[in-house]
Nucleic acid binder design. Structure first.
Length: 644
RNA sequence: GCCGGUGUAGCUCAGGGGUAGAGCAACUGAUUCGUAAUCAGUAGGUCGGGAGUUCGAAUCUCCCCACCGGCUCCA
């Protein structure tokens, strides 16, 4: 007999050899349909797992489709289903890996010819056939040697490679009829369990993500418990595309990229430029409040500066080719730091001067490979909201905490409350001493913890010159873009041999911190557009108010109202075209203007105006002064520009 | 850079070997209108660029360029 204790604390006994599926049917038949796996003594296992006598009582639970864990198992099984279909249609295909990802799964194959969109349809049809056949997922455990022999015989050399690197001596495989895959599992009981799925796209992907390896063909797909949920997901994707900053950038007159100018180079149109201007003004004001000194530096400089900094050695593939100036080589700057160092180095610094904080909206140019450009989010010329801080070791911890607070304050001011934080630690090749690194990593960690932030650690992903904290923001399709970055640098101070005089008057090397809060103005603005779906809050809106005349009779009155708003510094436009009010409102709404002011005969007679808000609709009639007060109250960053 | 896809009017898209179409936008005129599209007319394109096949190419082939989705890389 097997003794089981369920999650509801009830216990029951079953005969030896009972499977968890049978247990489930006995325990709760209704649950069966939605259950994909079981939890046995804390491990997630297949429902087909059989139990035999044991001294202890087993703890048993069930994993259902409505849990994230259950959905993940379900999607992983869908990936196997897809692989089975691919193998049936393309017997020469070799299997690589097929994990689940957020919202779906993929599988990588080595094939002679890349998949076409038609192939996807065929594969999808084959998957449906296999679902109808309701083929069981059968688990089998083998020794490593047996597994190697099996996959060698099958010609699955990627699997062989994976097994060879495994540390365990036993591995598990899953079979669906003739299809075999190396897999830890668990899986749903049979293909018939998989109900709603769709293959989304194909893409080339390097084996193990290394471009020196062969390129495999990846198929992305997704699966949901029901067709309705799948449709809802696909619809959500469509909706998200409407928030794409590239689309809104054109529709709202924010920016453009011209083939004649060159890829990755941004033309800021008046509305986009206005938002940028407001963002930059806010940024400067806040930096001055935080004790930064604003500086400006050139766009080109002699190449030697970059040789000294090490960028020419380490970063050359991203630097545009040098240009010849009177026999001297100059380059477009890919980074601002060497300039800031020059300014620091311009005079002798005392320990009393530190920390020195130089901030610049510094435009840099980097050669990015053509396939990686992406609207405003990945470009070849961009403006970093850069700063370099020179400080004594004893100041490191406090300064990092201040920077982190400042960063979060800036992000919050623009409405960003969701982001992913990463701490990247020491890589194999590094500059500076182990002690330096430990101190810097601890400071970064401590700062994150003091702010109560959850973060992931990217071990060994730090830059060679120091550890860093990055904050990434999601775009409308959930892709992450690194914006804020705080990097400790032990390298440049040494390379440029910068120093301050310590208390004994001895030249001492300061630590340098690079930091960008928004990352780059372009990327940040792109994220901002998607975050607000183009509907900027009042303080950022390029046009805050549009005055709408109802008929041509009212033009004069409308102009008067318009002038009064302009005089108060409100960003206002007037629409006195010979169009219906409905038409003008529609246009202003499509432009996401926060306020419209209707001025018709009625208003003219009473000397009032009828404002309409983007969010709340009609606000009723009021005096111009009252409306202005309303606007002025709301015309500020979300945090109100208060103290940190 | 690599894999796949796409490129037709300012925008969204149809057409698919016999020399180009719609809607919206633009322009002109009429209308003078009350909270998401008033009506009518006009104009607008060497079909991304180049080469080739052909009597004839926007359409077929090749090479480039740009964009889109991934991979790699990154703010």
């Amino acid at each position: 007999m097997v003794k089981l204790r369920f999650e509801d604390e009830s216990t029951r006994e079953y005969p030896d050899g009972v499977s968890l599926a049978e247990v489930l049917k006995d325990k709760d038949k209704r649950l069966f349909k939605n259950t994909v796996a079981a939890r046995l003594d804390g491990r997630v296992v297949d429902l087909s797992t059989t139990l035999s006598d044991g001294d202890a009582t087993h703890r048993v639970g069930f994993v259902t489709l409505d849990s994230p864990e259950g959905l993940d198992i379900y999607r992983h099984s869908a990936a196997h289903l897809m692989a089975q279909a691919v193998k049936e249609l393309f017997p020469g295909a070799r299997l690589a890996i097929g994990p689940t990802i957020e919202d779906g799964f993929y599988y990588d194959f080595h094939v002679e010819r890349p998949f076409t969109p038609e192939d996807l349809k065929k594969i999808e049809r084959k998957m449906k056939e296999l679902v109808k056949k309701n083929i069981p997922f059968e688990r089998e455990e083998l020794s490593k040697a047996e597994a190697l022999e099996l996959f060698r015989k099958l010609g699955e050399d990627y699997k062989v490679e994976l097994i060879e690197e495994m540390e365990e001596d036993r591995v598990s495989i899953y079979r669906q009829k003739d299809f075999v895959d190396l897999c830890r599992g668990p899986h749903v009981p049979s293909t018939g369990k998989i109900r709603a799925f769709k293959l989304i796209s194909t893409a080339g992907a390097y084996w193990r993500g290394d471009e020196r390896n062969p390129m495999l063909q990846r198929i992305y797909g997704t699966a949901f418990p029901t067709g309705e949920e799948l449709d809802a997901y696909l619809k959500r994707l469509e909706e998200a595309k409407k928030r794409d900053h590239r689309r809104l950038g054109r529709e709202l007159g924010l920016f453009s990229i011209s083939e004649d100018v060159g890829p990755g180079l941004i033309l800021w149109h008046p509305h986009g430029a206005m938002v940028r201007h407001i963002v930059e003004e806010f940024w400067k004001k806040e930096h001055i409040r935080q004790g930064y000194r604003l500086i400006y530096t050139p766009h080109i400089a002699k190449i030697d500066l970059w040789k000294t900094s090490g960028h020419w050695d380490f970063y050359r593939e991203n630097i545009f080719s040098p240009m010849d100036v009177e026999g001297q080589e100059y380059i477009l700057k890919p980074m601002n730091c060497p300039f800031h160092i020059q300014i620091y180095n311009g005079e002798i610094r005392s320990y009393r001067d530190l920390p020195i904080r130089y901030a610049e909206l510094g435009t840099v140019y980097r050669y990015e490979r053509s396939g990686v450009l992406h609207g405003l989010l990945r470009v070849r010329g961009f403006t970093q909201d850069d700063a370099h801080i020179y400080l004594r070791p004893d100041q490191l911890e406090e300064e990092i905490r201040n920077i982190l607070k400042f960063t979060l304050y800036i992000l919050k001011s623009f409405g960003f409350n969701e982001y992913d934080i990463y701490l990247s630690t020491r890589p194999e090749r590094y500059a500076g001493t182990l002690e330096d690194w430990q101190r810097a990593e601890t400071s970064l960690r401590l700062a994150l913890e003091c702010e109560g932030l959850s973060y992931s650690v990217d071990p060994g992903e730090g830059v060679f010159y120091g550890p860093k904290v990055d904050i990434k923001i999601k775009d409308s399709l959930g892709r992450l873009w690194q914006c804020s970055t705080i990097q400790v640098d032990f390298n440049l101070p040494k390379r440029f041999n910068i120093s301050y005089r310590n208390e004994e008057g001895v030249p001492t090397q300061p630590i340098m911190i690079h930091r960008a809060l928004m990352g780059s103005v372009e990327r940040f603005f792109g994220c901002l557009v998607e975050h607000y779906a183009g509907a900027f809050p009042l303080w950022l809106a390029p046009v805050q108010v549009v005055v709408l005349s109802v008929t041509e009779r009212n033009t004069g009155y409308a102009e008067g109202v318009y002038r009064r708003l302009v005089e108060r510094g409100i960003r206002v436009e007037i629409d006195k075209r010979n169009e219906t009010l409905g038409f003008k409102i529609r246009e202003a709404r499509l432009r996401r203007v926060p306020f419209m002011v209707v001025t018709g005969d009625k208003e003219e007679r009473s000397g009032l105006i009828s404002p309409r808000s983007r969010e709340e609709g009609e606000l009723g009639s009021m005096r111009v002064e009252e409306f202005i007060r309303h606007i002025e109250e709301q015309n500020r960053p979300l945090e109100g520009g208060g103290d940190l």
